[in-house]
Design a protein around this nucleic acid. Structure first.
Length: 604
RNA sequence: GGCGAGGUAGCUCAAUGGCAGAGCGGGGGAAUCAUAAUCCCUAGGUUGUGGGUUCGACUCCCACCCUCGCCA
């Protein structure tokens, strides 16, 4: 029976470049997990895309005097570039600005409306007479009615820190042209969350035993203490997804509401692009399918509460509306939301505006992807906030990655290549040889168990522990000594070590795909472990968008201890990883901007 | 202010009531296949603080301190 796994990955907002905190929080864990699931032979779908709509993008577009679409395209392109170079194997990385996503989002809206989980409400909002449009709260500033600060945003005062009622702002003015806006009545759709609260609560309680405590307790705490309140799902903007209702076409869906729907629409788009139009239903209507959401902790309420509420509220109605089939089946609810905490840098929070940050593309200019993936996994903030320290990065690269794993592969391959040139024929195994193979073989269970539970850091540690065991084995068996006494026995030892390395290659592959692939070739295999990443242009009614696809056609990697073919010719070995000069740490630290003012950093 | 997570060795982290552990770093030694990588031995902790429950507490309860997030 095929098992279905969907890895939904946080949708990066297309108004900024991606930094290491975004990568370690969501994108990298999703890739490690998905690569593992594919090796396990499960039908795996890792999907995400650029979040193209919403106010931050229109603000930026206004600042630069370009269209929101131009902003979104610029950053979207940089995302595709980064993901390919870092080896993040999205089955589909698309965008929310596609005809498909529009249709799916509008269908969810319609399903919720027909199921009576939406209502409308009239309210007053600031309206720009000069521009003839409603202004988002952050476009309006004026005098704070609490402290008298004259440059307060309409929804929040930066001096007294209070959240404000926008309609009470004194002397309001538009940040766009300085004109005086006026309050006008508008009407919006709301998601009736109180009606869905009991179901959402039951959903969370059922998953509490295995979810990360900080994810489920925070969500349940919120419901217990405050309960869920109705939340607006439409806005007066012209950049976004129009409401699919007569008389409402000039309003768009609120970005919080439609972006999460991308997990569903991306699965559908993937099905279309790969020529299997109904395949997505295996992940979305099959109650056995497991859907995981890889996000940062700032996104927890949207994935643990709002998105489940949208799915529950749409229920079977979605299938009926979207496919015309009745009765429909309910949409699959999240199986797990393994949200990560935050990554800090040298003891201080990331700050893009101060350049206190590690930009993904910038890191890749100077470092290979696997060392970055290794370090990011080693410090992955699975249970609490963690820190990137440059000296720690060099230390872990040199003393752990190069020393334990890279050196192990290189010492065995170099010696065998020099004396045999191929995988040696083993003679009778000694008890020690058998014991080593058994130890590494068990790694498929022990490392796999960690990966199943999305304990990625622990899985990597376990794989490293096994690599160290092979080093120990080599010290005791000392094939470099043995070859002078008994060449056949030396061959047995090296066969054993090569077999162990061949398996370790697979255990490391989800984490370090580039070096595992290189090692795979050195060991004489000709077909790759993983598939390829492809960029493709897709045309639709909204124009064209570029997507990143994963083509698994050539992938041969499997999460099981397969036999290493005796006599397989070896390639000339090259070191898997480069040793780095630790003195560069100071250079990297100097490259950073000023730390945020409220941060003292690490005492060293 | 409310809700939640976290605070364990120099560093990064394990350990859900049963002798507080691993890796790295520090100290000593062995080996020479390997990118001076590796292997063995070793030092190092009043588990944030103060109480409580228990035969027994890192673990459960109460209060407080610190860090972070969400909400107001």
């Amino acid at each position: 029976m095929t098992e279905y796994v969907l890895a939904g990955v946080a949708w990066p907002y297309a108004n900024a470049y991606i930094h290491a905190g975004n990568v370690v929080g969501a994108y990298l864990p999703a890739d490690i997990f998905s690569r593992y699931q594919r090796l396990r032979g499960r039908a795996t779908l890792m999907v995400s895309g650029s979040d193209a709509h919403g106010t931050p993008i229109t603000v930026r577009a206004d600042q630069e005097g370009v269209s929101p679409e131009a902003i979104y395209r610029r950053y979207h392109r940089s995302f595709l570039d980064l993901f390919q170079r870092l080896g993040l194997t999205y089955d589909l990385f698309t965008s929310t600005h596609t005809a498909n996503h529009f249709k799916v989002s509008q269908t969810i809206f319609e399903a919720l409306r027909l199921n009576d989980y939406l209502f409308t409400k009239r309210e007053k909002q600031w309206y720009s007479v000069t521009q003839q449009r409603f202004l988002p709260d952050r476009y309006v500033e004026g005098t704070c009615y609490i402290c008298g600060y004259e440059a307060a945003r309409s929804d929040q005062c930066d001096r007294c820190g209070n959240l404000l009622d926008p309609t009470r702002l004194i002397n309001p003015r538009s940040k766009l042209d300085g004109s005086t806006p006026e309050l006008r009545e508008t009407e919006h759709f709301y998601l009736d969350l109180p009606k869905l609260e009991a179901d959402v609560r039951a959903f969370l309680e059922a998953r509490a035993p295995y979810w990360r405590p900080h994810v489920v307790q925070q969500s349940l705490g919120l419901i217990r203490t405050e309960g869920l309140k109705p939340r607006p799902i439409s806005r007066d903007l012209d950049w976004g997804i129009p409401l699919p209702l007569k008389g409402w076409e000039h309003k768009v869906l609120y970005v919080w509401f439609e972006a999460v729907i991308g997990y569903l629409s991306a699965a559908i788009e993937w099905s279309t692009l790969t020529g299997q139009p109904n395949a997505w239903e295996q992940w979305w209507f099959n109650p056995e399918a497991r859907t995981y959401y890889f996000i940062g902790k700032d996104n927890i309420p949207f994935h643990a509460i709002m998105w489940p509420a949208q799915l529950i509220g749409s229920g079977a109605r979605f299938e009926e509306l979207f496919t015309g089939r009745a009765p429909g089946r309910p949409l699959v609810l999240p199986y797990d939301v393994p949200a990560n905490q935050f990554l800090n840098l040298e003891g201080c929070k990331f700050s893009g505006s101060r350049n206190w940050a590690l930009w993904g593309l910038d890191l890749l200019e100077r470092y290979d992807p696997d060392p970055l993936r290794y370090y990011l996994t080693a410090i992955m903030p699975e249970t609490r906030d963690t820190d990137w320290y440059w000296d720690d990065f060099f230390r872990r690269n040199n003393d752990e990655l190069v020393a334990t794993w890279g050196n192990l592969a290189h010492r065995v391959l170099s010696f065998t290549y020099k004396h045999w040139g191929q995988v040696p024929e083993p003679g009778p195994f000694a008890a020690e040889d058998e014991a080593l193979l058994e130890t590494v073989r068990a790694g498929f269970h022990t490392v796999g168990e960690h990966l199943e539970k999305v304990h990625l850091r622990a899985g990597l540690q376990e794989a490293m522990r096994l690599a160290a065991r092979v080093n120990q084995y080599l010290e005791r068996r000392a094939p470099w000594k043995r070859i002078k006494e008994d060449r056949a026995d030396a061959g047995t030892i090296l066969f054993t070590a090569l077999q162990a390395i061949d398996w370790l290659k697979v255990l490391f592959a989800p984490y370090l795909p580039f070096s595992s692939e290189a090692l795979h070739r050195t060991l004489g295999y000709t077909r790759p472990l993983f598939g390829r990443q492809v960029v493709q242009e897709v045309r639709d009614a909204l124009g064209a968008h570029e997507v990143l696809l994963y083509d698994p056609a050539d992938a041969t990697g499997r999460w099981e201890p397969q036999p290493l073919p005796v006599g397989q010719p070896l390639q000339k070995p090259k070191p898997l990883f480069r040793k780095l000069d630790p003195a560069l740490a100071a250079e990297e630290q100097a490259r950073l901007g000023e730390p945020p003012a409220d941060c003292v950093g690490r005492e060293r």
